[in-house]
Computed example of a mutant assay.
Amino acid sequence: MPDILDDLRADLDAAFARAERKRARRGWTFGAATAALASTAVAVVLLAGGTTPPATAAEVLRAVAGVAQDTPAPVPRDDQYYYVRSRTTNLSMFAGVDPKHEHAVTLVEADREIWQSLKRPGQMTVKVIGKRPLTPADAGRRQGPDVAVPGGGRVGKQHHYLLGTERLSRAELLAYPTDPQVVYDRIRAHVGSGGDSREGQVFDAISSALRERPAPPALRAALYGALALTPGVTLAGTVTDRAGRTGTAVAFTEVGVRTELIFDPRTSELLGERRVLVEPARSGIDAPVGTVVGDTAYLERAVVDEL
Rank of each mutant, 00 (worst) to 15 (best):
A175P: 01
D196S: 05
H101L: 15
R142E: 13
G164Y: 04
S197F: 08
D179G: 02
L162E: 12
A104M: 08
G130E: 10
E172R: 12
Q158M: 15
L162H: 09
R142Q: 14
R167I: 05
D111L: 13
R154G: 14
Y161V: 06
K157E: 15
R141C: 08
R112G: 01
E102T: 15
A110R: 05
G195N: 02
V183Y: 05
R154H: 06
G195P: 02
R132S: 12
K100A: 15
G156H: 03
P136I: 11
T125A: 12
E113Q: 15
R132Q: 06
A218T: 03
P216W: 05
G144I: 04
Y184T: 01
P150A: 09
R167G: 09
K119C: 04
A137V: 01
A189P: 05
K131E: 15
K119T: 11
L118P: 03
L162P: 00
H101G: 08
G194E: 04
R211I: 00
H160R: 06
V183F: 07
A209R: 06
P217K: 14
P133E: 10
G195Y: 00
V183A: 09
P136N: 14
A218C: 01
P133S: 11
Y176R: 09
S197D: 08
L210R: 01
S207L: 01
L107N: 05
G144M: 07
A110F: 01
D146F: 07
P216E: 08
G200I: 00
P136Y: 13
V105M: 11
P217H: 07
R186Q: 13
A175T: 03
Q181S: 11
G156V: 09
K157Y: 02
S193C: 02
T178V: 13
Y161E: 09
I206Q: 00
D204M: 00
I114A: 13
M124Q: 15
R170K: 14
Q201G: 02
G194A: 10
G152I: 06
R211S: 10
R198P: 00
G164D: 05
Q116V: 11
T178N: 04
G192P: 05
E172N: 06
V202L: 08
D146W: 09
A137S: 08
T106H: 10
L163P: 04
T125E: 12
V149C: 12
E199W: 00
M124V: 14
G130D: 14
V202S: 08
I187T: 07
D185N: 15
G156F: 02
R211H: 12
G153K: 09
D185T: 10
E212Y: 06
P133H: 12
E109G: 05
A148M: 07
Q158I: 01
